[in-house]
Nucleic acid binder design. Structure first.
Length: 577
RNA sequence: GGUGGGGUAGCUCAGCUGGUUAGAGCGCAGGACUCAUAAUCCUGAGGUCGUGAGUUCAAGUCUCACUCUCACUACCA
């Protein structure tokens, strides 16, 4: 069995994430991790909150809180939301953790020793009123191109022209509105990505199993020519820039008081640091996951992320890893997603457009969201979320196809066979048909999970459920019951076994409902894995429950979403606007 | 502006290196069944594959132009 390291892009600390963030990294990573565990692989699934950067400082300021306090609070909120969505992290860390401070400072030191870091002077807008340097987009003013009065310093929202903040007419701070801004010189460390171009290109070209989206974005940047990138910022909250060569020392590098590492430098390093924290907490060994000289050479490392993160994961972070010349594990497979859109437009907090993770659970159980978002995963394209589509997939796939199947067969067994798995009957055409279906579809399902094709995995899962309904139509135990109870028995028995199998197969995507089904059917915990083996074993799946075994009917698994619900939600969340 | 992704049935999407009548789910129409959450099963109608040229015996699939849309564009993350 393989060892698989799974990470999902770190959710930023600045607020609860919306459904798009969930669908594009955390949820598919979770589902992949769950599926691989069921297949018997050793899986480590790591995630964390990404806590540094200007937006975190400003959000804390808005909330009237100390940054560290704010991050602590938001970390708990995100951990809670993740738990409620049943994200099966082995560890959910924080990029502000001491382990990440140490490791980030370590990488910076090693990179500098390898001549990949140098200090340079740049010019940056400083706001006297705010007492801080402002990132380009936090400077606003009148667009010199179109005259739009609230153009951001990086790009004008009105005409789309790319800008430099010093080009703005009447610039002001977007934080305070103060016009008391000036351009100051500031020194920063730069990571010399340019010298790594060819090695990165070779690595990207050799990569296998990346979606087109991921490799094309990486190659695009390489084709344009990698520029050196500054990896420090003028901020107080973050990882201090310690003195060169003084590993472990807390002494600040000269000229770097009030500066910290850039959030994008330290965030991916947190994948490793979080693993260290996980190991410290559990007594496990982190090096066998990350150090190729300590056993990580046979790890398959899979990263999940939205398309906006691809450049950082294919170029910046690999530069850090490769540039260190230390035996760190590099990503093997990278799964990138497009966006989930809100009725075709962008999710927007300020305009109250869209559903966020905490609100979502007030509307519907996590399984509903998990199913809908994966059945419509933004894999090839941006995917539009609408409550109407949500209603349609949930009612059809979960309530009608799966929920009703489990309900009809368990109720029937309870009514006609005393709630016990009945013996008797002769297997015929219907049984041969369902076996051939399972022999074709179960391997296909597993292959889709292995390929990280989530839409297809959901579609195949659904197709297997639908085949169960079709089997019952063919076997028609209620018809046989009138003349031949044994023939009714086999249809019921196979039907019950299919219900159990459906629960087993549903576990990655809808773990709560799967548990309910498996509990009702009395399937023991150690009989829920995906150890299906070859075709001969698949045949045995429809006769796995012991004869005479007691089965119950679960409560309604999925209540339907009514038109009234959709109307209410649309009104509340601005759907269809 | 530059670069990249995408534009396939009413809707949401599959279609690998070009090859018989372009697929799925939902929705819609008709039929079957009655065990079940008015659920299920079967059948059917629905597409000039964004537009226009080109290459080829053959193009949704390759080339060029155009158009719409989304993303990125290096100090938001």
């Amino acid at each position: 069995m393989a060892r698989i390291l799974v990470t999902s892009a770190l959710p930023y600390i600045n607020g609860v994430k919306h459904l798009g963030n969930l669908a594009g990294s955390m949820l598919p990573a979770d589902i992949y991790a769950r599926a691989m565990r069921l297949l018997g692989h050793e899986v480590l699934y790591i995630c964390a909150t990404d806590e540094h950067g200007t937006p975190a400082e400003l959000a804390a300021q808005d909330a009237g809180m100390d940054v560290a306090e704010y991050c602590e609070k938001m970390h708990q909120a995100q951990a809670g939301a993740g738990a409620q969505f049943k994200l099966s992290y082995d560890y959910f860390g924080r990029s502000s953790a001491p382990s990440n401070h140490a490791l980030t400072q370590h990488f910076a030191r090693v990179l500098e020793e390898n001549d990949l870091i140098e200090e340079r002077i740049s010019k940056q807008v400083y706001s006297n009123a705010d007492g801080r340097f402002l990132p380009d987009r936090y400077v606003e003013g009148t667009c010199p191109n179109c005259g739009f009065e609230a153009a951001r310093g990086d790009q004008c929202d009105s005409c789309g022209k790319l800008l430099d903040p010093i080009d703005l007419i009447n610039p002001y701070s977007a934080v305070s509105g103060s016009t008391d801004v000036e351009v100051r010189e500031t020194n920063h460390l730069y990571l010399k990505q340019s010298v790594m171009s060819e090695r990165l290109r070779d690595w990207v070209n050799a990569a296998k199993g990346w979606p087109h989206l991921a490799s094309s974005i990486a190659l695009k940047w390489l084709d344009e020519g990698l520029r050196d990138r500054s990896i420090t910022r003028d901020l107080s909250w973050g990882i201090p820039v310690t003195q060169n060569g003084a590993d472990g020392s807390k002494k600040i590098r000269s000229g770097f008081d009030g500066k910290v590492f850039y959030v994008w430098f330290d965030a991916p390093i947190e994948y490793i640091a979080a693993t260290q924290d996980w190991a410290a907490q559990t007594g496990a060994d982190w090096e066998r996951w990350w150090r190729t000289d300590k056993g990580a050479d046979d790890v398959s490392y899979v990263q999940f992320m939205g398309k906006d993160n691809v450049a950082f994961h294919t170029l910046s972070f690999p530069t850090t890893i490769i540039g260190s010349a230390e035996p760190w594990k590099l990503v093997d497979q990278l799964k990138a997603f497009n966006w989930v859109t809100w009725y075709g437009g962008k999710f927007s907090t300020s305009q109250k457009r869209g559903v966020f993770m905490d609100q979502a659970l007030n509307i519907a159980p996590s399984d509903y969201w998990r199913w809908h978002l994966m059945a419509n995963a933004p894999e090839g394209n941006d995917a539009s979320f609408t409550f109407e589509e949500f209603q349609a997939t949930i009612n059809s796939d979960l309530a009608n196809v799966l929920g009703n199947f489990v309900n009809r067969i368990t109720k029937y067994a309870a009514g006609k066979f005393d709630g016990k798995v009945p013996d008797g009957g002769v297997a015929g055409e219907a049984e041969a048909w369902i076996i051939s279906e399972l022999e074709a579809r179960i391997p296909a399902l597993i292959a889709y999970y292995e390929a990280k094709e989530f839409r297809k995995a959901a579609a195949e899962t659904r197709a297997i459920w639908a085949a169960g309904n079709e089997y019952l139509t063919k076997a028609a135990p209620w018809t046989h019951y009138k003349t031949d109870i044994d023939q009714a028995a086999i249809g019921t028995r196979i039907g019950l076994n299919l219900a159990a199998l459906f629960g087993v197969l549903a576990q990655p995507i809808i773990p709560d409902a799967a548990d309910k089904i498996l509990a009702a059917l009395g399937v023991p915990q150690d009989n829920r894995s995906w150890d299906f083996g070859d075709k001969e074993q698949i045949k045995t799946l429809i006769e796995a429950l012991p004869i005479g075994h007691a089965v119950g009917a679960p409560d309604v698994l999925f209540s339907k979403i009514e038109d009234d619900d959709v109307a209410q939600w649309s009104a509340k969340f601005g759907g269809g606007a």
